[in-house]
Design a protein around this nucleic acid. Structure first.
Lengths: 160, 160
DNA sequence: CTTATATAGTTCTATATCGCACTACACAAG
DNA sequence: CTTGTGTAGTGCGATATAGAACTATATAAG
């Protein structure tokens, strides 16, 4: 029935669907491209998911639990266990028992972890400057709040 | 030196970097959330990457080569080989030799493939209607062209 | 025609992601 | 204290992603 051409004659909301699809498609591709860009600036073997954790801890403060980090990125906790094991193996974070809860742990950045994060950020700055020449700051300023709002809506209406 | 506070007093482009970071962070998280949303509406075992291929072929016409599809999504061709093998195994596409190039193949949607795609789209329409109540169409219309432009810039300036 | 180089796709292998089942601890009820 | 229920994290297995090396075909140079 959605293929019925007469459907399209409905006065309100003629076909918002395709626009939403286009939105998510663009977001998917840009996500892919930016991930690739970032990973070129990371030490061998580190990927976007690893950086994301380092960045999260540096920006919002470390001493977070693994589960809270997993939730922040909307990934299963098993994935986070794996990511944290890699980071710990590389000496970029340390895992300490949570004094407030025996089931839990707390994640702390090491100096090496901070350095890797800062190095990636510094390494990206030429890329960003280059982008800034081609895509005006005004556009970025326009998009970011719109995306933040959308993210929040998707986030709070998750279970579906 | 990027931590030097005096840096921030530069008249032009005081710190565009963090804004760009925020942009890509939001895009990453929204990508993650929308992927999860989509996968709830797909048949068991099919994921976002599989749907993307079906959708691509349905929208732009089938008879594409595997490599062209890989490029459209910015994934390595080895990943596409795998994805296509899954889709073929499920009877959602067929792979035919390319009469114009003996090295190459052409990908065609089967009726089952079209049906799975349409089923996912139909299944998503309640979700989209729900989103549309919380996030105005105007905002989507505002974002999409901005993202398209950004994607194109990232796409053409890839090698870095 | 022969050779050199480039391209499409696959195979192999390593790592990432994620669901399921499990353990350990927390906390409330009794 | 004991029991029942919920939560944090892990181990394991299945599938996804991606780089390196390989095969087969195409195309250009001579």
């Amino acid at each position: 029935m959605p293929d019925d051409p007469t459907e399209a004659t409905k006065p309100q909301a003629p076909t918002a669907g395709p626009l939403w699809f286009a939105l998510f498609t663009e977001i998917g591709i840009i996500g892919q491209l930016s991930r690739t860009l970032l990973e070129k600036r990371l030490p061998e073997g580190l990927i976007s998911a690893h950086f994301a954790v380092l960045n999260h801890l540096a920006r919002l403060g470390d001493g977070k639990t693994p589960l809270s980090i997993a939730r922040a990125f909307q990934v299963p906790k098993t994935s986070m266990t794996h990511t944290l094991a890699i980071l710990e193996g590389r000496g970029l974070i340390t895992l300490a028992p949570n004094p407030a809860d025996g089931r839990s742990k707390l994640v702390y950045l090491t100096e090496a972890g901070r350095a890797v994060r800062q190095g990636a950020i510094d390494g990206l700055s030429p890329d960003i400057e280059h982008l800034a020449k081609l895509y005006s700051l005004e556009k970025v300023e326009q998009i970011v709040p719109l995306l933040e709002e959308l993210r929040q809506i998707l986030d709070t209406n998750r279970p579906g």
